[in-house]
Design a protein around this nucleic acid. Structure first.
Lengths: 254, 254
DNA sequence: CAGTGTGAACCTATTCACAGCT
DNA sequence: AGCTGTGAATAGGTTCACACTG
């Protein structure tokens, strides 16, 4: 409990706001779809609609990357795909380990989203000896004892924790000690990490609770229904980010 | 432009800020742990540490709920657990359906986080007839054909989408048409929904990309120690950007 | 013109710091 | 004395609206 690291001194990166970074993957996905349909250019309006954001926000976001559009025309799809990929660091290979191969870990291992876009599952790790050697999604599970060696041999800097909450912190510490500096945490617990390590968390139960809050409110307001102007934001979608560096972001479960 | 946006105070009713709502589940989890250890009271400092936030923020958050603390003492654990639970709507039962029982859907069905705290998996739904009737995590899978009936019979207002991206939008529309007003989306696609429906998304690949962004920057800064100056966001000129000109991608994840 | 790029206004969230209660 | 509750200050993010450009 000693380290109550909850600060995020992490140098306010020059440039790109965190909220923008969190949306880049969204733009990239929309652009990739356009690219596959061989669409050559898009306007901020069209792309924004596809990504579910408003166009002013999108233009502002892109302006942080540079001036990649053409006035009167729009953005070159291929070019933007490349620029965003580069900005996100997806032009390189990111080996990832998944620790905790239960139902969730196994599902993650098989998830296609990993394979695409530069992420590669370098290893699956679990503490259960019965699993050791058994292939999950085509990858043999390795034992926790070898965690440090696996991390180092594969040059892994991103770790995914899908263990029970009770062991998440200690797994986290071993990952960090072995050299991991980014962690995606699916365990329902707050991880404390040293400065310089990023943690993002995905928490199903938190997401449901947030939905329940709004759901309850809707129910309560039915009576006070005032047909008046519709609620704002059409294509509104849930917030997303909030993930400063080493501390409490809060989003997505799984 | 064209869009006649009727500006409207989103935060109707005395609103608890969205950012605060997103943290309440975190506090609740920490408080529940304290409760189980029979700790009677906590200070904002202690609770904040357990939840991984700073104490001023926590106190401010609680102040939106009312004055539930005692100056000079702290907060009564049990009382706070109750107040937050009530605020989040967890004192009632929320039947939930999961649509798409693949690896992920099955993992979600088995996830303990559901059971606790008022959420109950009312049904599992999948389009594959081969799955129909087969129990997953003890619950028999039902066929998509019966989706509307299931929603209505169970009074479901929260739906979880764990289908492939390609069918997520249409599943979403059926859920909404049947009466669901809150959706937790695990499919990597942007859902568009009518006003009044909340969508929260959980996207593994987005999270990884955000981590990759920061990871890349860490690597890049190892050399450039002094990041002092900081370029004014505005007026940034291209001279400092890595020249994208000549270098053509070539290898790009599709 | 159509559509980008961006200052400026606006809104939301975090942090500070201290008055006020127990 | 200790700790909450909160106005005020600050920082961060979004939206507006329009000058400017291809």
């Amino acid at each position: 409990m000693a380290t109550g690291r909850t600060h995020r001194p992490a140098t306010r990166s020059r440039g790109i706001p965190e909220a923008t970074v969190a949306r880049l993957p969204l733009y990239l996905r929309a652009l990739t779809a356009l690219s596959e349909r061989s669409v050559p250019t898009v306007s901020s309006e069209e792309l924004a609609a596809a990504a579910g954001v408003n166009s002013a926000k999108l233009r502002k976001d892109f302006s942080y990357l540079g001036s990649y559009g053409t006035r009167g025309v729009g953005y070159d799809v291929e070019y933007l795909v490349y620029q965003i990929s580069r900005e996100l660091g997806l032009t390189q290979d990111w080996p990832v380990v998944i620790v905790g191969i239960g139902n969730l870990g196994a599902a993650l291992a098989g998830y296609g989203g990993f394979a695409s876009r530069g992420f590669r599952v370098a290893a699956l790790i679990d503490a259960d000896p019965a699993l050791t050697g058994k292939p999950v999604a085509g990858i043999p599970v390795q034992h926790t004892d070898d965690l440090e060696k696996i991390i180092k041999d594969n040059g892994v800097s991103i770790g995914v924790i899908a263990t029970p909450a009770g062991v998440a912190q200690q797994v986290c510490e071993r990952l960090v000690a072995a050299g991991v500096t980014s962690i995606l945490n699916f365990a329902p617990t707050v991880l404390s990490v040293p400065d310089g390590v990023d943690v993002r968390k995905v928490d199903l139960s938190i997401e449901l609770q947030i939905l329940a809050f709004h759901e309850q409110r809707k129910a309560g307001e039915e009576t006070a229904a005032g047909d008046v102007g519709s609620v704002p934001a059409a294509t509104r979608d849930a917030s997303t980010d909030q993930g400063p560096d080493g501390d409490v972001p809060a989003v997505m479960p799984a």
